[in-house]
Nucleic acid binder design. Sequence first.
DNA 1: GGCGCGGCGGTACGACCGCACCGTGAAATC
DNA 2: GATTTCACGGTGCGGTCGTACCGCCGCGCC
Lengths: 194, 194
Amino acid sequence: MPKQVDHRARRTQIADALFRVAAEQGLEAVSLRHVAAAAEVSTGMVQHYFRTKDEMMAFAMAVVQERQQARITERMARLGADPGPRPMLRTLLTGVLPLDDESRAYGRVALAFLAYTAVRAEAAAPLREQTRELLGFVAGLVRSGGAAKDPDAAAAGLLAAMEGLGVYLLGGHFTPEVALRALDAHLDMIFDPA
Amino acid sequence: MPKQVDHRARRTQIADALFRVAAEQGLEAVSLRHVAAAAEVSTGMVQHYFRTKDEMMAFAMAVVQERQQARITERMARLGADPGPRPMLRTLLTGVLPLDDESRAYGRVALAFLAYTAVRAEAAAPLREQTRELLGFVAGLVRSGGAAKDPDAAAAGLLAAMEGLGVYLLGGHFTPEVALRALDAHLDMIFDPA
DNA sequence: GGCGCGGCGGTACGACCGCACCGTGAAATC
DNA sequence: GATTTCACGGTGCGGTCGTACCGCCGCGCC
């Protein structure tokens, strides 16, 4: 056996370069050469770790999902034991929102992938699964709040509001202040109907 | 003066071809040749009406916006005189949601443009303006409903929920039934807090 | 200590891209 | 009816794309 290389680490490092390119210039600027240049490696090396561009894209999408998932669970874990459903929800939702520069960069990439999967139906399944799981989790929290008439519908609306706020934040339509105020107003309506 | 040609009509006809290509294969498949082929004209003709590709894209984006605006005002007009804020809002929001095949195609294109503008900041201004106007209108309706504590925040949340529901519908994460149920639950919370 | 194989760089190919630029044809003007 | 002017169609150029493929380098095993 020749030189030992951690394939997953190398692939992740290439995917990070892909994110940088996509966040700055959009997904259509993502080419093997550009990604290789951003990663400061040769195009041959990129090809060595991803046999085709589609394979690279699929891996990058999976990484985005994993990071999102990890970000959520990490934030939830840091919250401590059972702080009640509303703080948990708020932590979850604000954790996903693109409020700082780093998460805005990720958000741009995620949005690009979203548009990408809208046309390539076969790549949309994992995203759907993630939404489904998140929806179930949110619905459970809403239900335990006890004030919503239709917890499933409320959870779907809340998740959709978060997604929309994210889109508007990325487009610069809303400021973070407006988005957070809208989110809190929404949580008020669910947990504390006047 | 030689042959009389309605420039706007020709440009719109080309833009429609662009929409077909973008809806089926994504924005990255939009090239002068593909659009020309979809419009069943020569690439030279496309170039004659749009000096550059960017000009064509900008025009197409403007058309999407105009159609969206027209769709909204037409639906509102058909509603009759003063049916109250909640039915007006519901008509407005369901009018924008991608619930049938045609509006799903438009939605895919709009989503692609959204990701497009997330990277080209100079093209985002008209979209921002449209959101701002819509937000003002929705806020007025929410305010006249009288039940919301913070009408501006509620309007922002409602608009965001609509956008998010649209995205989830396009991605197939939500069925139209779920989306409408979530929307009605959201309107319930705003107009009829239990 | 040669050998083999994985890691990796580099090049070439065919396709497609945006765009510049040509030529032609026909309608309106004088 | 000559001329001007717009409306196209077609071709070619320079560049980038994804991908196939070759060849070297160096580590680990027999």
